[in-house]
Design a protein around this nucleic acid. Structure first.
Lengths: 141, 141
DNA sequence: TCCTTCTTTAGAATTATTCCAATTACGACT
DNA sequence: AGTCGTAATTGGAATAATTCTAAAGAAGGA
């Protein structure tokens, strides 16, 4: 199994499900997200995949990230006005933005809590998605 | 009390606290937010204040909104990649984005629930801010 | 193979926002 | 009232992230 195909079976499967093709670009982009799960921006992904696919364009990285998001293989994360970041963690989870370093950490959320949060919605409100973001500081390690 | 000065006392007070001046532009912008609480964008605020202050510039609207945000008189709200929206509701609350109309609704959050959510953070994580956003649909009225 | 469709690509265009340099307006202090 | 220093506003240029566009490149099926 080649280095840039860690989860290519899952990828190929999901793409096929949506009637899309599996391309080297999509594999490499997906793989970059899996390999370093630090919520990179499109630019950062671009820089990471270039060594493996020198001809790839930034537009293609955007296209691939969009496609992967559509296929439910990655999640797009936004924080304030910053560039969109991408995350291959599919579990329901919150994000913690460390104001000191700018890093983003995943915070797992118990299902029971998610249910309680959704319960505050007035009757009739139907939530498809729930986004929870903390901003703060981590004490010095 | 003039129309565009509904809460100008609170405004003047908060500005003074921060060593800032009260200007007609700031009053009119703040007033626009109070008058129609539909989470307008900077552009929308610009359009709403123009009749009262025809010479105002978009840059000033951005400046005023930034100032008001600093003074804790309004809250900036971001949703995915869309333009920043502004909200004069200072209570801790979540937002519900209606996918059908694009409208944003405030959802009040019980303090007990907020505490429970903050409790999921690993020890040492200190959250200054908590942002909760729902995306979904309201059934036809 | 040919054809149609899907992808990628480079660069132009767009959107929201910030920056900048030049006025203008205040407020404090004579 | 007059001057001074700082704060605020303005219009336009600049920037950042992303999307659009049109052309060229694969890939799969009849």
């Amino acid at each position: 199994m080649s280095t840039h195909a860690i989860h290519s079976d899952a990828l190929a499967q999901k793409l096929a499900d949506s009637g899309l093709r599996n391309t080297p670009q999509r594999e490499v982009v997906y793989d970059a997200l899996l390999k370093k799960r630090d919520h990179p921006t499109a630019d950062e992904v671009f820089a990471r995949v270039k060594p493996q696919l020198p001809g790839i364009s930034l537009a293609t990285v955007y296209n691939c990230l969009e496609t992967l998001t559509q296929c439910d293989l990655v999640r797009a994360v936004n924080f304030e006005r910053g560039p969109t970041r991408y995350c291959p963690n599919l579990h329901q989870h919150a994000h913690f933005h460390d104001e000191t370093t700018g890093a983003t950490h995943d915070i797992e959320l118990p299902a029971a809590l998610i249910a309680k949060i959704k319960a505050v919605l007035p009757p009739g409100y139907e939530a498809d998605a729930l986004e929870i973001t903390f901003r703060g500081k981590l004490p010095a390690r």
